[in-house]
Computed example of a mutant assay.
Amino acid sequence: MDRSHSRQRSNAGSPKRPKTEGNGPGPAARPGGSAKGPSGPAHRAHWLFGVHAVLAALANPKRRKERLLVSKEAGQRHGEALDKLLALPGAPPAHQANREDFMSALPDSAVHQGLALQCAPLTQPHLEDLLAAPLPETARRPVVLVLDQVTDPQNVGAILRSAAAFGAQAVVTTGRNAAAESGVLVKTASGAFDHTPYIAVTNLARALESLKTAGYWSLGLAGEGKRTLADAKSDGPVALVLGAEGSGLRRLTRETCDELVHLPTREPISALNVSNAAAVALYELLK
């Protein structure tokens, strides 16, 4: 079914080293709606790392950047790009860093590629503001990804990367039991985090109802879905809903979706990782 007719367009010393970088709390959300402030703890600076993640964050005028660490090798390899980005308004002070500097700032497991940026979390839009904004001219069709308590930051980062690559409008997630902005998530997104809105909502069922009111047909990915995504998709706006691996979609989320659909996988592998499923589904919807 197509609801498209009803869519309304209208400079400090070495930082303290975090011991681990786990999921932590989900992106901060306000009751009944989407994130009012930055994802994660309000305005608390943290470290991003990796070439694509850091370059995208430096290029984002909405980012509050505090300090940039650059290894000698990375400075030589990416010097031209860094010179341009560091000439922009709001650029942070850059410091040539050695191995010990990176070890002091980042978790042991961080693959930093010679670049690390200390910055504040991004302030994300409200869902209602996203729905009221006109689509970019380059958009093929309105598609929003909705994540039901997907907590793994690498999965979420990969989903954001696919969302940016295929042209989804945004990724909507739960305010609790979700992956907050972190170095691991942003590194896995490979620059996509600073291009694709990551919106937290307190009540996912209510957010789905808002999407439906705005003209989106909500399709939940579930193995027991009677039709395939290809058979069920329409030409109008789509909210694609994915659940956590193992538990899948929660009961209320299932009941709120317009339809449950599946991807036609074959034995012996009957299920995909949630980030792989998101990529396949986005290709089907936006090809």
Rank of each mutant, 00 (worst) to 15 (best):
L68Q: 06
E284H: 12
R227A: 09
L135H: 09
A277N: 07
L208N: 08
P153N: 02
G167D: 00
G225R: 05
R30C: 13
L68C: 09
L252E: 15
K226Q: 15
A207R: 10
S6T: 12
R64T: 15
F49S: 09
V70W: 06
Q118G: 02
V172H: 06
A59W: 08
L55R: 12
N11R: 11
G26F: 14
G236I: 02
S270D: 15
D258K: 03
A87G: 12
P92F: 00
P142V: 05
A232D: 04
G236D: 06
Y216N: 02
T151W: 11
V261W: 10
V261A: 04
P61W: 03
V146S: 04
Q124Y: 04
D148R: 10
V70F: 08
L285F: 11
P142C: 04
L88V: 07
A214P: 02
A189N: 13
G40N: 04
G50V: 15
G13W: 07
R64S: 14
V184A: 15
A232R: 01
S218V: 09
Q96T: 13
D101Y: 05
L130N: 03
G37P: 09
F166C: 13
P61T: 06
P41F: 05
D148E: 04
T138H: 15
E259C: 02
R30Q: 15
